[in-house]
Design a protein around this nucleic acid. Structure first.
Length: 563
DNA sequence: AGTTTCGGCGCC
DNA sequence: AAAGGGCGCCGAAACT
C-alpha cells in the first residue's frame, strides 16, 4: 500500500481518494467513496494525506475522532511557492493554480470570512472552491516540480511539509481549547476592577479612578479619551504629544498616578473583561482559532479572543483539569540563537552553543558586563534600531560578531532595494512589505492622494527614502523572525508526534512558547519530549549546527505560576 | 446609520 | 530613556 494518498471531499458528503506513488503521481484510479472520515479511518497505514485545504478537511475529521499523521496542504504550498517565485499577490487557490497550469482565466481568491465569538460552526463551513481530485492532483504534481526549481529544494519541501504540520497542530489546538477557569477569571476581575454596575458601565474601581483624575485636574476628565486628556494637561500648562504611558509617566502631576492605573485597568476591562469571558469561554475552555502561518513572517495569528495577547494577570485563569498539569515551555533567547544558526557567525555560534543565558555571554565577551545592554544591542541589531541605547553598543557587536550583523545588514539592504528576502527554509518576504503606502499600492489597494507625502529624501544621494528604510527594517527582522518561525513549526510537528503516544494535548502556542496539557504523571515525559523536539527541529531546520535551543520549562497547575 | 481608521496597549 | 520588528483588539473618531 502506498503511504501517500490524496483526497477531495465532494459536494454530497462523499469523497474521492487516490493512492500516490513515490513521485507524487497517481498510482491508481480515483475512487469514489461515501464517507470522508471512513475513507481516512480505513487506511491507517497512510502516512501523508494530500488535500486542498486543511481548514476544509481536518476539523471535520477531528469531529469524527479521526487524526492523521501528516498532510500536504495544496493551497498553503501554493502560497509559499508563489512567494518564493516572487509572485506575491497572485490568487493562491487551487482553482487559480489549475487555471495557471491549463491556461484559463485565473479566478480571484474568495474573500476571507470574519471572526465571530464562539462560532465553532464556522470551522465546519466549507471554505474556498472545491476541485475534483483529478485536477488537484495535476496541481500537486506541478507543485512538486516547482519545489525542484527553488534555490534549496530540500528546504522548500521541508517548509511546505512543516507548515502543513503546523496546520494540523492548529486544528487540533482549536478543537482542544485552552483550559480556562471562568470562576478564577471572575475573581481576578473583581479583585482588580471591583463590582460591576448595572447597565454595563464602568466597574467601581474604574469609576473611582476616573473621579481621582478629574479631581486632580479640577474638572471632569474622561481618562479613556486621549483628546480629553491632552486638553486637560494643556490647561494645566503641560503640553504632551500623546497620551502613551511612557510619556504620561514622565510628567509631574497628581493626575498621573490614577490616570496610568486607569489605563491599565481599562485595558483589562475592555479586552479581557466579563464580556470577553462571555464571548470566548465555554465548558471550561477558551477557544480561539489559531491560524498557522497567518503572517508574512510565518508567525501564527489567532482569530478572535486575542489569544496571543493574554495579559499576565489574566493568566491566573488558565488552570489545568483536576489531576492534570500544564507544561509551559519557553525557548530561551530564540531569536539571537536563530541568527547564530543562519549567519554561521563563529563567535555567536560559540555563545549560542551553550545553554546558558545568551545575553549574559554576549555581555561578558563584547561589553563590560551589563546584560541588559547586551540584550538591547542584540535586539536592536535584529530590529534595525536607529537610535537609543542599543545603538551605542552596536559597534562592539559588529566587531565581535561581524558575520551575524552582516547577515541582517545584507537583508536590510536587499529589502531597501526591493529584492526578495527569504527565511532559512525559503519563506519569502514580499518585496514591498513594511513600506506602508508603497506596499498598499503595489498590492492594488488605492491610496488616497491626500495622504501622499512627497519623499524629498528620495532624490538625495546616499539617503534611502523613508519607505525604503522601512522595507529595510522589515526585511532585516524578517530573516530572523521568519527563520525562527521555520524552527518552531518543526518543533511543533515533532512535539505533536511525541504527544500522540500519550494523553497529552498541545493547547497553546505563542511565537516561542508552548503549553501542553497532560496528566500529572506524564509531565516529566512531556518536558523531555519538548527538549528532544527542539533539538530535532534544530537539526532538521538548520542542518549541522552547534547552536542549541534550550527551554525554560515549568510544570504547573496554573499558567500564572510558570514565570 | 454603517464602515473604516486611529490611538493606545496587550503579547512575543 | 523611549527608538527599531511582528501581530490583534477595543472604543472613539472620522469618514461615507
Amino acid at each position: 500500500m502506498a503511504d501517500r494518498w490524496a483526497l477531495a471531499p465532494a459536494e454530497d458528503g462523499g469523497v474521492e481518494v487516490a493512492a500516490l506513488g513515490p513521485d507524487g503521481l497517481p498510482a491508481g484510479p480515483v475512487r469514489r467513496e461515501g464517507d470522508l472520515a471512513e475513507a481516512v479511518r480505513s487506511r491507517p497505514d497512510v502516512t501523508r494525506w494530500v488535500w486542498r485545504s486543511t481548514a476544509e478537511v481536518y476539523p471535520r475529521l477531528l469531529a469524527m475522532g479521526v487524526r492523521v499523521e501528516r498532510c500536504y496542504d495544496i493551497e498553503d504550498a501554493e502560497t509559499l511557492l508563489l512567494g518564493h517565485e516572487g509572485r506575491y499577490g497572485e490568487p493562491r487557490s487551487a482553482a487559480a493554480a489549475l487555471a495557471r497550469l491549463r491556461g484559463g482565466p485565473v479566478p480571484p481568491d474568495p474573500p476571507l470570512r470574519a471572526a465571530e465569538p464562539g462560532a465553532q460552526s464556522s470551522l465546519f463551513e466549507p471554505q474556498g472552491v472545491r476541485l475534483p481530485l483529478e485536477d488537484l492532483l495535476a496541481v500537486y504534481a506541478e507543485q512538486q516540480r516547482r519545489h525542484d526549481r527553488t534555490a534549496h529544494p530540500d528546504r522548500m519541501r521541508l517548509l511546505t511539509a512543516a507548515e502543513s504540520a503546523g496546520m494540523l497542530v492548529a486544528a487540533e489546538m482549536n478543537r482542544a481549547g485552552v483550559p480556562w477557569s471562568a470562576d478564577v477569571h471572575r475573581e481576578v476581575l473583581h479583585e482588580l476592577l471591583g463590582e460591576r454596575y448595572a447597565g454595563g458601565g464602568e466597574p467601581r474601581r474604574l469609576a473611582e479612578l476616573a473621579d481621582e483624575v478629574s479631581a486632580a485636574f479640577g474638572r471632569r476628565v474622561r481618562p479613556d479619551l486621549p483628546a480629553d486628556v491632552v486638553r486637560a494637561f494643556a490647561q494645566a500648562g503641560i503640553r504632551i504629544g500623546s497620551t502613551r504611558r511612557w510619556e504620561i509617566e514622565s510628567i509631574d502631576h497628581p493626575a498621573v498616578k490614577p490616570l496610568v492605573e486607569y489605563k491599565k485597568l481599562y485595558r483589562i476591562w475592555v479586552a479581557h473583561g466579563w464580556s470577553w469571558l462571555q464571548d470566548w469561554v465555554r465548558d471550561g475552555r477558551f477557544r480561539p482559532e489559531f491560524l498557522a502561518g497567518g503572517t508574512v513572517t510565518g508567525r501564527w495569528v489567532t482569530n478572535g479572543g486575542g489569544a496571543l495577547q493574554i495579559p499576565k494577570v489574566i493568566r491566573r485563569a488558565v488552570v489545568a483539569d483536576p489531576g492534570w498539569r500544564l507544561v509551559v515551555a519557553d525557548a530561551d533567547q530564540m531569536e539571537p540563537r536563530v541568527l547564530a544558526a543562519i549567519s554561521r557567525d563563529p563567535g555567536l555560534m560559540e555563545v549560542a552553543g551553550r545553554e546558558s543565558d545568551l545575553y549574559q555571554s554576549v555581555s561578558d565577551r563584547a561589553f563590560s558586563g551589563d546584560r541588559a545592554q547586551a540584550k538591547l544591542a542584540v535586539l536592536g541589531a535584529i530590529y534595525g534600531q536607529t537610535s537609543g541605547d542599543g545603538l551605542k553598543n552596536l559597534a562592539a557587536l559588529r566587531r565581535r560578531f561581524p558575520k551575524a550583523v552582516a547577515y541582517v545588514d545584507d537583508a536590510a539592504r536587499a529589502g531597501e532595494e526591493g529584492r526578495l528576502v527569504r527565511t532559512w527554509l525559503g519563506r519569502t518576504c514580499p518585496p514591498a512589505a513594511g513600506a506602508g503606502e508603497d506596499a498598499a499600492e503595489e498590492a492594488g489597494i488605492p491610496v488616497t492622494s491626500a495622504e501622499e507625502e512627497p519623499d524629498t529624501q528620495q532624490w538625495v544621494p546616499g539617503y534611502a527614502s523613508t519607505n525604503a528604510r522601512a522595507r529595510g527594517r522589515f526585511a532585516r527582522n524578517f530573516v530572523v523572525q521568519g527563520s525562527a518561525a521555520d524552527w518552531t513549526l518543526l518543533l511543533l510537528a515533532a512535539l505533536r508526534r511525541a504527544c500522540a503516544d500519550m494523553a497529552a494535548e498541545l493547547v497553546f502556542f505563542q511565537h516561542d512558547e508552548v503549553i501542553v496539557h497532560c496528566p500529572e504523571d506524564e509531565a516529566e515525559a512531556v518536558v523531555a519530549a519538548i527538549r528532544e523536539a527542539g533539538a530535532l527541529a534544530a537539526r532538521l531546520t538548520f542542518g549541522q549546527t552547534p547552536v542549541r535551543f534550550p527551554f525554560s520549562t515549568a510544570v504547573v497547575e496554573c499558567y500564572a505560576d510558570a514565570k
